[in-house]
Amino acid sequence: MRVVIAEDDVLLREGLAGLISRFGHEVVASVGDAAALPDVVREHRPDVVVTDVRMPPGFTDEGLRAAIALRAQSPLPVLVLSQYVEQTYAAELLESGDGAGVGYLLKDRVGEVAEFVDALTRVAAGGTVVGPEVVRQLLRRRRSALQRLTPRELEVLGLIAEGRSNASIARELVVTDAAVAKHIASIFAKLDLPPTSDGHRRVLAVLTYLDA
């Protein structure tokens, strides 16, 4: 997997590069500000970009904007690391490119190195990854629309939003795959999601949370 890193803090940038390399992936370039990102991406055509939200020059949300802009041009997988859970940012990012190949994680998550690299791989493969902290906060929103769901269904939906597969959800909740599939079908029905492709509906179900 070929990775581009955008992170303004030198120590963190090098740490990330070391971490990703250690798991056998290649960091083709790393930049310290968002402005440099488009050129580097055009030059190296990475499989995935890891970017910080707040970067020079304005130290607001440059990294996030750059990621969204890049995804508007081509379906580039992007994993955004943020110091905070900002619903606005998360929703904007996950809406870009239909929510495929995108991730929003709290920066702390890089401490769980194996999980972090796993998330990066899933994003590169076109998956949607939303950190548990992000999901928890987003779940608090939109309670009205979600009132129709049972607690168990909410739990399942939370795990879907984390990008888990049915099998992984079944393991987590210690139930059968069939039970998970039943819950998911019920969630889709209650959220009025039409039966198109399953993967797309999963994303839509997640977006239902985000898009209050």
Binding site: D9, L11, L19, F59
Partner: peptide, 24 residues
Amino acid sequence: ERDLHDGAQQRLVALSMRLGLAKL
């Protein structure tokens, strides 16, 4: 806020990352 964000918070993230790597 900016000082904490750019300083202590980044250092702690880096520390957490190194500890995670060391565990491996």
